[in-house]
Simulated assay, not measured.
Amino acid sequence: SIKVVVRVRPLLEREIEKSPECLVDIDTDKSIVLRPGGDLLKARKYREAQRFMFSKCLWSYDRRANVPYADQNTVFTEVGLEMLENTLNGYNSCVIAYGQTGSGKTYTMMGSDEEDGLIPMVCRQLFKRLNQQVDSKIQVKVSFIEIYQENVFDLLGRGNKLRVRENSERVAFIENLNEYNVSDSQETMRLLNKGLENRTTAETHLNKQSSRSHSILTVTVSQEKFDPATGSLVKLKSNLKLVDLAGSEKFVASDGLDKIRQQEGSRINKSLVTLGRVLTILSEKPNQKTVVPYRDSILTWLLKDNIGGNSKTSMIACVSPIDYDETLSTLRFATTTSKIENQVLINKE
C-alpha cells in the first residue's frame, strides 16, 4: 500500500497575532482528530470530531509534553530512510508532498536556510551509502522539472517547453529532458538550488511565497556488481522521484489578484482534481478493463507508475491546524491514497 504520513504545521507569523483555535489533535502516533471550531459556521453539519488513521502522524504545531515534536530529522527518519533503502535495493520509489497552499509542503521537502528538508537529506545520505559500497560500479543521474499551467519545463535547462511522450512499453517520458551525471551530494545540491531559482512562485492571499507549479526531482541510480553465488554480473536500476505539488486552494485564495494568479490556481486545481479522480479509481481496486484517466493531466501521466504501478510510494499530507475545510479535504484525500496497492518489482538484470 501507499504509505501516508500526515504532518501538522505550526502557526505562521501572520496567524499568531489572531490567536486562532487549534482544530487538530494527535492522540496516537497513527491517529489524528479534527474538530469543528466553536465559532465555525461552515462546520455545523459536522457536529462531532472526526478521526483518521494513517501510517504515521507527525506533530510540528508546538512542543507539548504528551506528543513528540516532529522536526525535519523526524520526517527523514519516518519517510526518507525507507525510500533510501528501496532505491539502493533496486526498487522504484516516490515521495509526494500534498496539501493546501501554505501548509508546509515546500518546507518539508526543501527546508529553509536554517534547516534542510527531506530532499537535501536524502541526497546527502544516498551518496554516503553509495560510497560505502566497494566492488560496485555506480552511476547517478539527476533531472528536475516543473509542471506549470499543464506544460513541462526543464528547471535545469533553458526553460523551453518540453513534450511528454510514451515509449513502446507505454511508459511516459519527457522528450529532450536534460539529465546530469552527478558524483557527490554537493554537485546534486548545486543543481537542485539552480532548479529552485527557476521555479515559478508568487504571492497569494494564503501564502507570500506560494509554489505555482508542481516540481519533480528524479534521481536515477544504476548499480553493477558481481554476484559470486551465481557467478554473474547483476545490474540494478532504480529511480527515486521527489514530488512537491503546488498547493490546492479555493478560488478565494486568488480572488482579487491578477488574472495570471487566477489562471494558475484553476490549472493547479485541474491537475489535482484529476489526481484525486485517478487515486479514487485506483483505491477501488479496478480490474483490467477499467479505464484510469492518467492522460487527463500531465501530472498523473508522469506519475502513472508511482501511483498505480511499479513503485514504493509515500505521501506526506501537510495540514494546517486552523483551517477546518481544507484540512478535512486533505485528510480525506490522504485516506483514499492509503487504500491503493502497487505491484512492486526489483529492477534487476
Rank of each mutant, 00 (worst) to 15 (best):
E82Q: 14
S112A: 12
G104I: 05
T77V: 11
Y69S: 01
T101C: 04
S103P: 13
F76Y: 14
A43G: 06
D39Q: 08
Q100I: 12
N86Y: 08
L40R: 09
S55C: 14
C94W: 10
S93P: 05
N66M: 08
E85L: 14
Q100S: 12
L41V: 04
V67R: 14
E114Y: 07
A97W: 11
R63V: 14
S103M: 08
Y107S: 09
G37N: 01
S103E: 10
L118K: 04
E85C: 13
G99L: 04
D39L: 08
V95G: 11
N66V: 07
M83Y: 04
L40E: 13
M110I: 08
Y69D: 02
E85Q: 15
A70S: 11
M53H: 15
A49C: 13
F54Q: 06
K42Y: 04
W59V: 01
A97G: 13
I119L: 09
V95Q: 12
D116M: 05
S60R: 00
F52T: 02
K45N: 15
L118W: 07
W59C: 03
M83E: 11
F54I: 05
K56Q: 15
N89M: 12
L41W: 01
T74C: 12
E85D: 15
N73D: 10
G104R: 03
F76N: 03
N86C: 12
M53K: 15
A43L: 03
S112K: 07
S112L: 04
C57D: 01
Q50P: 09
Q50C: 14
D62N: 11
A70D: 06
G99C: 04
W59F: 01
M83D: 08
L41E: 09
R63S: 14
M83V: 15
K56W: 10
E48D: 15
N66F: 04
A65Y: 07
N86M: 05
N92I: 09
T101S: 10
V75P: 02
N73P: 05
G38C: 00
K45R: 12
R64Q: 11
R63M: 12
A70V: 03
T74M: 10
